[in-house]
Design a protein around this nucleic acid. Structure first.
Lengths: 257, 257
DNA sequence: TCAGAAAGATAACATCGGTCAATAGACCCG
DNA sequence: CGGGTCTATTGACCGATGTTATCTTTCTGA
């Protein structure tokens, strides 16, 4: 089963503030970012495919993704489905705090570092700082908005477009937390991961990757996406960043005004 | 454009408490249900396909669905996609309070009655009653869980199974708010609505409905689903109610323990 | 009661995507 | 260095789904 976990405890962890709670930053009053950071009293490292929290497990702490990427997965006997991807700065299992048991599992994609906050401290934090409670609610709302976009994506797009859309979304979300846009978007995904995100077979994911390569818009090699034409790729995927409510460094996209 | 709206204002509206805030009930401390009801100071009726709130619009009040059904839709130039369905008791646009602008539209399916609460009052309510703020956060988390299940459904199931799953989910959600389970599940959906929920063409939705009829599990006529075999239909759709966190009259499904 | 509109049903054909099988390349470990 | 495993690739075949068109049924309003 999952191995390689590494828990290092410290009463005070030192974050830069650059990406921790990245998606919350713009909505936080003065001092709240530091306050949220102070809730994180432990760190844990995971390796590729290691499970942070399994569906149905009880949790007494919640995790914020500090470095790396994670999947939300729902599994059946013979297949895994990825229903969401997370980038640094995301609270990945905040709902384990309110719902007690998760309806899905949280799995590392590549090497990952998370910060952990005890539920008892979160409980206290939400009571004594309404603005923090609000920020967490906002994070949940943004997750829901991303979920809705995935639903539309699955309803509307074919496999190559879905893959393009996923990379466009990740590129934008990484931009929000301050990662520079470059020609190469480095992701630890296999084609099977892409297949499980798109709801297609591994063989068809390979066909989709090939088709993207043929169009000349993007080339995906071992998870890393190379492109010289981000605008073209976004058009191809019918990607519109408005649903990400681009707080942070990214300009709010007012395309629906 | 949308017509037929009907705003009737009253300083005190009389709800039975049976279905209003239905999904919140089990998590509310004594008196909070009445408190939430007191936030609703207006009612509005909508007719089939009337838009309550359009993507991108600013809102200064939020709606709770009192009677009827509503869709969350995302539209492109030539097609509509339904990314969620709501039943009585659901806050349908609570996020317009926190996010200001919605990423999607809210549309009535059949005749609908909603209660309206001013954002200024909600703001006050969340500050003075943390338990109410918590309940609203919980409602958002449940929405997100339903969204995730839709993502998995779209990734995993074919069209007939998707339709079966949607009806199973609605049957369960109506059970949670106290609607009796009967042989017929009456819904104001057209086959085009089903197509837009499943991400398939109208023609294929018709094929899927035909296939369900052939299997003998269910018959759908003008939106109403008739079945004598709910367990069989749930197996066919691979439906497991656990993700709905069945508070309320419905027993919590502990199937993942 | 009738006519028009909306919803549903059906058929023919094309494309998308699943499955199976075989192969090649990349990486890991001894 | 060599074998084993994971990942990527490709081809053949088949079922699922999209598109277009036509037709029937049902609803609705004059």
């Amino acid at each position: 089963m999952s191995r390689g976990s590494d828990i290092s405890a410290g009463s005070r962890l030192n974050y830069t503030g650059d990406f921790l709670a990245g998606r919350l930053r713009a909505n936080l009053p003065e001092g709240d970012l530091e306050y949220i950071e102070s809730l994180v009293t432990q760190e844990r490292c995971l390796t590729d495919r290691e499970v942070l929290l399994r569906r149905g497990q009880l949790a007494n702490q919640s995790a914020i993704l500090v470095e790396g990427f994670m999947f939300r997965t729902m599994d059946t006997c013979d297949r895994r489905f990825i229903v969401g991807v997370h980038v640094p700065g995301d609270f990945v299992d905040l709902h384990s705090f309110a719902l007690k048991r998760l309806d899905h599992s949280l799995v590392a994609s590549g090497n990952v570092r998370v910060g952990l906050a005890n539920h008892s401290r979160l409980e206290l934090a939400m009571r004594e700082r309404p603005s923090v409670a609000r920020a967490m609610w906002f994070a949940t709302l943004l997750d829901a908005a991303i979920h809705r976009k995935w639903i539309q994506m699955l309803e509307q797009l074919d496999a190559p477009q879905r893959i393009a859309h996923i990379y466009c979304e990740l590129q934008t979300r990484l931009g929000v937390i301050g990662r520079p846009v470059s020609r190469a978007l480095r992701m630890p995904f296999t084609q099977l991961d892409l297949a499980d995100m798109c709801g297609v077979s591994a063989v068809h994911a390979n066909r989709a990757v090939s088709k993207l390569r043929e169009t000349g818009l993007a080339e995906i090699r071992r998870g890393t996406l190379y492109t010289n034409d981000w605008p073209g790729l976004q058009r191809y995927a019918q990607f519109d960043a408005a649903y990400l409510y681009g707080e942070g460094p990214l300009k709010r996209n007012e395309s629906w005004d």
